[in-house]
């Protein structure tokens, strides 16, 4: 891994934190990541994140489910093994609606969740880099990469964080492969 040295700024109030992000980005400083204990409203805009395309993926998976279910049932009932159920039509479309709906939901939900796990790099047994254990408790963290920065630039970031209301600013270095 290339990046092993980081600066971690910790805030304790989300509104101060959001203002800080705006000011820091305004100064042209790149924020490596932000860690929060819960989804903070307005964080995406403050960080300038692009909207997620997960819902588009969900629609695609759902449409796949719809198509598969309808095609499969039609093939079974008309081609592969047509059976006369008490004189009912061989291709009873209304009877297919419930299963088609269920399969749409099933495919959309599973497809989206798996995409979500892959895109977020989440899997059982993954060992994440913990910048500060309190980021899942009550601290809102900003992470800056420190590998390529000079000492004066590092100090500028640190003093800016403090000026913007960070309650703690610290260095964090990970061992190779951690």
């Amino acid at each position: 891994m290339a990046n092993n040295k980081f600066i971690v700024g910790l805030w304790d109030h989300e509104e101060v934190y959001l203002h800080a992000i705006e000011h820091i980005r305004h100064k042209g400083i790149t924020i490596y990541d932000s860690l929060t204990p819960f989804p903070v409203h307005g964080l995406d805009e403050a960080l300038g994140l692009r909207d997620t395309r997960l819902h588009t993926a969900g629609f695609m998976f759902g449409a796949t489910g719809t198509t598969l279910a309808l095609t499969f049932m039609s093939w079974v009932m008309t081609t592969n093994y047509p059976i006369d159920f008490g004189g009912k039509p061989y291709w009873p479309l209304p009877s297919f609606i419930p299963i088609t709906f269920e399969m749409t939901v099933l495919f959309a939900a599973w497809g989206m969740t798996l995409t979500y796990l892959v895109r977020n790099k989440l899997w059982p047994g993954r060992v994440p880099r913990i910048f500060d254990t309190r980021t899942t408790d009550d601290r809102f963290a900003l992470i800056f990469e420190a590998d390529k920065l000079s000492d004066s630039e590092l100090n500028e970031i640190k003093s800016l964080c403090t000026a913007e209301g960070a309650v703690e600013v610290k260095d964090k270095t990970f061992a190779e492969g951690e």
Binding site: S34, L35, P39, L54, V127, P128
Partner: peptide, 24 residues
């Protein structure tokens, strides 16, 4: 950690999390 799938709580994770829970 195994149960959490290695969750960190980064902004992008939360953004996708909110999208996922809303669509689900």
């Amino acid at each position: 950690n195994i149960a959490s799938f290695g969750w960190q709580g980064s902004a992008k994770q939360w953004q996708r999390f909110e999208s996922l829970s809303l669509i689900l």
